[in-house]
Computed example of a mutant assay.
Amino acid sequence: MGIKVLVVDDSMFFQKRISEILKPVASVEIIGFANNGKEAIEKAQSLKPDVITMDYEMPVMDGLTALRKIMEVAPTPVLMFSSLTYDGARVTLDALDAGAVDFLPKNFEDLQKGGPKIRETLSDKIQSVAKQFNRSPKARFTPIQTELDSDKRKGESQPARPARQLESKLDKPLASQPKASATSRFEKNTKQDTRLPTLDLIVIATSTGGPVALQKVLSQIPASFSKPIVLIQHMPATFTQAFAERLNKTCALEIKLAEDGDILKPGRALLAPGGKQLLIEKSKVRVIDGDDRVNYRPCADLTMASAAKHYPGKSLGIVLTGMGSDGCEGAKLMQQTGSPIWAQDEETSVIYGMPMAVAKAHITSAILPLQDIGPTLVKEVR
């Protein structure tokens, strides 16, 4: 029996197309449909699916309300279908806060055409979530508390490309540096070394599960934090502006969608825009279009490689929850210059892919639960 999927959408066309697209995928089995949020809650309990795909605009009960209830009564990995608009981004971010694992663009043109590409995208997402999803309540199912309508709280505390190929995408290769000793932190019960050298920059990379993880980490950092931060989150271009605004409202730090030439300064976090590449230079960032040779836009490997070049031994790389291994090759370059690398632990990761990659590469100096990353960062930088 394949991965059991419940499709929740009020559109019969959408239900039919999803069924047709996934029918050839032997490892995925659609076990039912729900036409509204109320039916979704009932079928989540009775059918016990492995994954739920959820629309948010439905009669009787909307998807967001249903999602919150499902997280209470029958916790299940949920993939939200979202329109690629600013309003769609805001609703999707609400859904991620409420417990959804990830989202998929609801593009009717793509659905009508079908074909191998959308089948691969949809089936890969479903299979990855079902296979790797960590059902621990530490990783998911606890809705994050947000204060989007309140004043900002000031003062509160794909396969990776080889590292040498990343260097070739920068203006000049990295200077030759002696390789720092790499102690494995992948084995359990290994002592953590969170001590930091003198730093000038923090780089945080994440993907699936990242919007909630970033919000939890950044909300624990005060406005007086003395180092600049760069954020790499895999996200469509139409979503990153809404995400930056959301973070800026809920965190004490100044959080801004990065623009070409933005200055790196204390108390500010720059979020890489979707569909672009962010490169770090001395005291500022460059935002460029990039090209098809790189799997992700933004790509954590490229950003971290540029940090290794311009801040050798003076930056901290932090890799959070996410599918795949983006960030691992860039983190290797950072670590080779003497910069420390932290990773989120498996128990609190929604998807233990990206942090596992750096842990298995034996380049981490510490593997930490999500709730400890912000406070430890503040303590050690101070």
Rank of each mutant, 00 (worst) to 15 (best):
A34H: 06
E156G: 08
D193K: 11
I126T: 06
A269I: 02
A272C: 09
Q177I: 00
M61S: 05
W342H: 03
Q158W: 10
I52M: 12
D97G: 10
R68N: 12
Y311A: 04
S339N: 06
S226N: 14
V5R: 03
V285M: 01
Q112Y: 10
S283P: 00
R286W: 01
E259M: 13
K216F: 04
D260S: 15
A242C: 12
V25P: 07
D62Y: 11
R140P: 00
L6R: 04
S157Y: 10
Q241P: 04
D151T: 13
K69M: 12
Y296I: 01
V217H: 01
L201K: 03
P75E: 08
F141T: 13
V78K: 05
K38E: 13
S224D: 12
L104Q: 09
P173A: 03
K169F: 15
L377H: 09
T240E: 05
S123N: 07
K249H: 12
E187S: 11
A44S: 15
D345H: 07
K276M: 14
A223I: 03
V101D: 03
N189M: 12
A252K: 00
N295E: 10
D9P: 04
A269S: 09
V129G: 05
K249F: 06
Q158G: 14
Q241S: 11
Q335K: 15
K191Y: 05
I52C: 02
I255R: 05
A357M: 03
R382M: 11
D124P: 02
E245L: 11
K43H: 10
L278R: 00
D291C: 06
V294W: 11
G338K: 00
E57G: 01
T76Q: 02
R185I: 05
Y311N: 03
K282F: 01
A272L: 05
L278M: 15
Q233C: 03
E29A: 12
G88V: 10
G317T: 01
Q215M: 14
F108C: 04
P116H: 10
K332R: 15
D110S: 07
T303A: 13
P178N: 09
N189W: 09
Y352A: 08
Y352C: 04
Y56E: 00
K191N: 09
Y296Q: 08
V7E: 05
K332L: 13
G32N: 11
F225C: 03
N189Y: 14
S19M: 11
T53M: 04
T240S: 11
V285T: 07
A223G: 15
L67Y: 07
A66P: 02
V25T: 13
G32S: 05
C299V: 07
D94Q: 14
I229Y: 02
I351D: 04
A89G: 14
T337Q: 06
E245H: 09
I363K: 05
D9V: 08
Q165V: 13
G290S: 08
P24E: 11
T142N: 14
Q145H: 10
A163M: 08
L302E: 04
T198Q: 12
T190N: 09
N248E: 10
L316P: 02
S349Q: 06
S150Y: 10
L199M: 09
K314F: 08
D149Y: 11
I144F: 11
T194A: 10
P266F: 07
N36V: 12
S150R: 15
M235L: 14
T121F: 10
V51A: 09
Q277Y: 00
K117C: 01
Q165L: 13
L47N: 08
K48I: 12
G209M: 06
D260G: 04
S19Y: 04
C328K: 12
K154S: 11
Q177N: 10
I204G: 00
D301S: 09
